[in-house]
């Protein structure tokens, strides 16, 4: 890797003021599993002057529950979350999503904050600089999206306009279904954002000098079914091609309320509100599931090589509705 200034910080305030000192030319490192790969492959046109190590922040790796629900410190490791009894008991969609991330070593290292804030896996965006130079695009400052006319099998099928990269995070999809928020700290103080609003067409909502500090998950109804289904060519290692998370409240076979989130379809995990509507008040059966599945992709506009994702979204939506709360 090319050199950078390495700075370890003791507190959130220290992290923010150090970020300020570098005027947008610093990057945060926590678990390191994404950022080091970004730096090694030099995929970004601007190389950071400094890496701000926030692993040294003490006490930001908590997982605790209070009356409002679950609070997870941004530095909590994915493996800790996946093994946590409370998460496995009440926030199962999140536990399931965390268990599907990459491989066991990555889960031992990677943090929930990093999983949410990681950079996209678009293979044009990630093309390593050492093999003839990085591929520029709008997400890197300027340039057309090479995926539109290229191999877009893993790209967005919904909502995308200028950038067709998708959000790679597994936990984000579960957290959108769980209607979670993230707490962000910056020089101006603290703000909270719904996970569903955290992602933007070209990245995420974190501004320069801000860091993600906490994930807050409201307690879902105890009776609700929770699911996370990830479709990938391989169960381990791979990022999802499509994933669906759902929290579904069913009484006597009737769907009272549901929250369904789609991953791998857009730059953010999307709530499948039309599908939720289609299921609401209906008896959960094949017919309901099919109409919800169709509704979930009503807005899809696939590219040249990814219309298969539309079918897979439908299948997964149908399956989350029809499945029991599998372990």
């Amino acid at each position: 890797m090319k050199s950078f200034q390495h700075v370890s910080v003791p507190t959130i305030e220290g992290a923010i003021s150090t970020l300020k000192d570098y005027k947008g030319k610093a990057k945060v490192i926590a678990g390191g599993t994404d950022i080091l790969s970004v730096l090694k492959d030099r995929i970004l046109p601007e190389y950071p002057q400094a890496l701000i190590n926030i692993k040294t922040l003490s006490g930001l790796d908590y997982i605790r529950e209070d009356k409002d629900g679950l609070k997870i410190g941004a530095l909590a490791r994915l493996s800790t979350i996946a093994d946590n009894p409370v998460v496995n008991n009440k926030y199962r969609a999140l536990a399931k999503a965390a268990k599907t991330v990459a491989n066991p070593q990555i889960r031992n290292m990677g943090t929930i904050g990093g999983n949410l804030a990681q950079d996209t896996r678009c293979w044009y965006y990630r093309y390593p600089h050492q093999l003839g130079g990085r591929i520029m695009c709008l997400r890197k400052g300027n340039g057309p999206c090479a995926a539109v006319k290229g191999d877009n099998r893993y790209h967005a099928i919904m909502e995308a306009k200028k950038c067709f990269a998708v959000c790679p995070s597994d936990t984000a999809v579960a957290l959108v279904a769980l209607e979670a928020t993230v707490k962000i700290r910056g020089p101006q103080g603290e703000r909270t954002v719904l996970v569903s609003a955290f992602y933007q067409p070209l990245g995420n909502d974190l501004k320069d000098n801000e860091i993600l500090t906490e994930i807050q998950v409201p307690e879902p109804p105890a009776s609700a079914r929770q699911e996370y289904i990830k479709f990938a060519l391989r169960k381990p290692v791979d990022f999802g091609i499509v994933s669906v998370a759902a929290v579904i409240k069913v009484t006597d076979g009737v769907c009272h309320e549901s929250s369904i989130a789609l991953g791998g379809v857009a730059s953010a995990p999307l709530r499948a509100t039309a599908a939720e509507q289609a299921a609401k008040g209906k008896v959960i059966n094949e017919t309901t599931a099919n109409s919800a599945a169709e509704a979930s992709v009503a807005g899809a506009r696939p590219l040249s090589k990814n219309s298969y994702k539309v079918e897979i979204v439908k299948t997964l939506v149908k399956r989350v509705l029809l499945s029991g709360d599998s372990e």
Partner: peptide
């Protein structure tokens, strides 16, 4: 990728 000649599976 036949537009750029690049192998994307890098």
């Amino acid at each position: 990728d036949t537009n750029t000649g690049r192998l994307l599976t890098a």
